[in-house]
Design a protein around this nucleic acid. Structure first.
Length: 646
RNA sequence: GCCUAUGUAGCUCAGGGGUAGAGCACUUCCUUGGUAAGGAAGAGGUCGGGAGUUCAAAUCUCCCCAUCGGCUCCA
């Protein structure tokens, strides 16, 4: 009997029933067959060695496919387990999945205790040795009873616990070499393609993420079909380390932390403040153009405010504890969000439909008690400033406001040089409508508005059902930085809850009170987080308009300090931020230091320049950095040109 | 909050029960220079904090704090 296989390009081929994807690949080309790691049959990922009985759609997966990578890495996790078992016979295994970048395996080392990264080379060597044996990954379907007996005999309580939740009849083992694991797959045909392996990290993790359970040793690793790819990946990791915003932030004197001020409380140094202020000014100007009104609200708010907003009930226990006044015994909380304050602004006077939409914006600093172990540079802090705004509008205006915000957010990304981003639209789960506040019609209208607005802006979107907040649907931007890493930045959220809780209303054309819709939005997200991403994206080489120091004047010798002062005054008059390196150092040294400080423009002045009233300009980029001598006016023009080209 | 590791000069790090070390940075002096590190001298530390063991603790033990990597959480 023969079957029809439909390939992704639409081609239909005829094969005998029972043929495997691997054999199909071979029939197409040997090269393809060598690269096939797994297959997708009618949308389901499976082993490339699984026979196909019926006519199907087939996608052959290689390492270049995301799903192929996962299979590859998952198979490597099994290889890691095999190596560990052969090196440490007492080891017991938890789970060993593929992750976005590689894989991990959770293991219990038993009496041997902890493993350390010093053990990695030996384990890697063992893994490579085992990979070279080209053992096939053999799938066996087993009964639950058989599986239980197997792991009982082996004494692996973790696998036994996993088995408890599995249905008899859907249990499979995979074996490669001497190692057998409970696993639903899929896997590589053999260990052969695993040519380059690196164990990266060791950490502890609770069994099943439950802190009352055993801690397991988690070993992270990554693998590739080619050594070159591993080298490139390791290079990327190194590059990421060099760009770490914590390191660059300290080196470039952007921000600091102080034990005495407190963990997770960033202190913005003058240069960081200059950078941040420019970002804020940029957004303020753009918001003003779009009808936003800037407000300032206090850093604390009365407890009743948060009881009204519902935040107290939901987060009160896990927040910074209340502040009490000594005499009156009033209770205040550090504000964890700006929206309750903004709701009060909306409520402070009667509003008409003619006033809507009302757009209230604030660079509002908020305080949240993040767990000590969670703090991380500027990306995870306890005090941060949101580029917050709340739009109060009618249901009909939601789409227009969304378009407005999307346009602003895209402008921000463009201005910062983020070219690759997707929008995640989070909708409610239709199966559990009771989890959400607000009427059905309003939800449907808002969800439709978001989807349409995103489509009109031509955004690449993903849609997640059930990811909406209980108070409304939202859209989050996922931005890829220069190293290809994804970050969640801007967010737009529809909120039906707070207008309800604050009993907000406006008078409609019918003279009746109506409930406004509230939209939270923050194109940057938070200044701290955004700047941390910006630092890593640009590696500290900020665009000219943002750079704290745009230019530095380097006198060839102290004799030209006077001339340097004149140049500095001219630059200042042109609004160019420049300083003079007045040290008695060689020019080479001054250039090197300016490079290290990542200052975009160097202006070198010596006898030649002083005599001819010119400046010699050197830009950061190596290729055509040396622009030679030019008169002051020409430099000002060049500067403007550089600004305009950003 | 939990698990692992770390904490020595501004930075990067060495050392290690008995007078605290290097390189860079810093200060001073010499050098007055032409596109990524000129030379010399000097200053700088209660070795994260507290308690304990000891004749003696930066070193060993315990408790805190901070940080790294994870886990859990994230309005």
């Amino acid at each position: 009997m023969s079957i029809h296989i439909t390939l992704p390009d639409g081609a239909v081929r005829e094969y005998p029933s029972g043929i495997t994807p691997l054999e199909i690949a071979k029939s197409i080309s040997e090269g393809l067959a060598r690269n096939v790691v797994a297959a997708k049959i009618n949308g389901e990922v499976c082993d490339a060695t699984r026979p196909i009985q019926e006519s199907s759609n087939l996608v052959l997966l290689t390492f270049n496919d995301t799903e192929g990578k996962k299979v590859f890495w998952h198979s490597t996790a099994h290889l890691l387990a095999e190596a560990l078992e052969s090196l440490y016979p007492k080891v017991k295994f938890g789970i060993g999945p593929a992750i976005d970048n590689g894989f991990y395996y959770d293991v219990d080392m038993g009496e041997k205790g902890v493993l350390s990264s010093h053990d990695f080379p030996a384990i890697e060597a063992k893994m490579l040795e085992l990979a070279k044996q080209k053992n096939p990954y053999i799938r066996t379907e087993v009964s639950k009873q058989y599986a239980v007996e197997y792991f009982e005999k082996k004494g692996d309580q973790y696998k036994l616990e996993l088995l408890e939740n599995l249905q008899d009849g859907s249990i499979s083992f995979y074996q490669q070499g001497n190692f057998i694991d409970l696993c639903k797959g899929s896997h590589l045909p053999t260990t052969e393609p695993i040519k380059a392996i690196k164990l990266l990290n060791i950490a502890s993790a609770y069994w099943r993420g439950d802190e009352s359970r055993n801690t397991m040793t988690r070993i992270y690793g990554i693998s590739f079909p080619k050594d070159k790819e591993l080298k490139e990946y390791l290079h990327l990791l190194e590059e990421a380390k060099k760009r770490d915003h914590r390191k660059l932030g300290a080196e470039l004197e952007l921000f600091m932390f102080s034990e005495r001020v407190g963990a997770g409380l960033p202190i913005w140094l003058p240069k960081g403040t200059a950078l941040r202020t420019r970002l804020e000014d940029f957004l303020k100007k753009e918001q003003q153009k779009r009808g936003y009104q800037l407000v300032i609200t206090p850093h604390i708010g009365g407890k009743n405010l948060y009881i009204t907003s519902g935040h107290y009930e939901k987060y009160g226990k896990d927040s910074f504890q209340p502040i009490n006044t000594p005499r009156e015994g009033e209770t205040f909380l550090l504000k964890p969000m700006n929206c309750p304050h903004h709701c009060e602004i909306f409520a402070h006077k009667p509003r008409s439909y003619k006033d809507l939409p009302i757009r209230i914006a604030e660079f509002g600093t908020v305080y949240r008690y993040e767990q000590a172990g969670e703090l991380h540079g500027l990306s995870r802090v306890r005090s941060f400033t949101q580029d917050d705004a709340h739009l109060f509008c009618t249901v009909e205006q939601v789409k227009g406001e969304f378009l407005n915000v999307l346009e602003l957010t895209l402008l921000v990304f463009q201005k910062m040089g983020f070219k690759d981003y997707t929008a995640q639209i989070s909708l409610r789960d239709p199966a559990t409508p009771e989890k959400y506040i607000g009427s059905d019609e309003n939800w449907a209208a808002a969800e439709r508005a978001i989807i349409e607005a995103a489509a009109e802006k031509g955004l690449k979107t993903t849609t997640e059902l059930g990811e909406a907040a209980f108070y409304g649907p939202k859209l989050d931007f996922m931005v890829k930085d220069a190293l290809g890493r994804s970050w969640q930045l801007g967010t737009i959220q529809v909120d039906y809850n707070l207008p309800e809780r604050f009993d907000l209303s406006y008078t409609g054309t019918d003279g009746q009170a109506h409930r406004p819709v509230m939209i939270h939005r923050a194109p940057f997200g938070s200044m701290e987080r955004f700047i941390s991403v910006l630092i890593e994206h640009t590696a500290g080489r900020f665009p000219l308009w943002l750079a704290p120091d745009q230019a530095i004047i380097l006198p060839i010798s102290e004799k030209f300090l006077d001339y340097s002062q004149q140049v500095a005054q001219f630059l200042d008059s042109k609004g160019i931020r420049a300083t003079i390196d007045e040290r008695a150092e060689t020019t080479g040294r001054k250039i090197r230091d300016a490079e290290m400080r990542k200052i975009p423009i160097m202006i070198i002045v010596g006898e030649k320049e002083a005599d001819t009233q010119t400046v010699s300009v050197r830009l950061k980029d190596k290729e055509n950095g040396d622009k030679g001598a030019m008169n002051w006016g020409d430099f000002a023009n060049l500067f403007q040109e550089l600004l305009d080209n950003e």
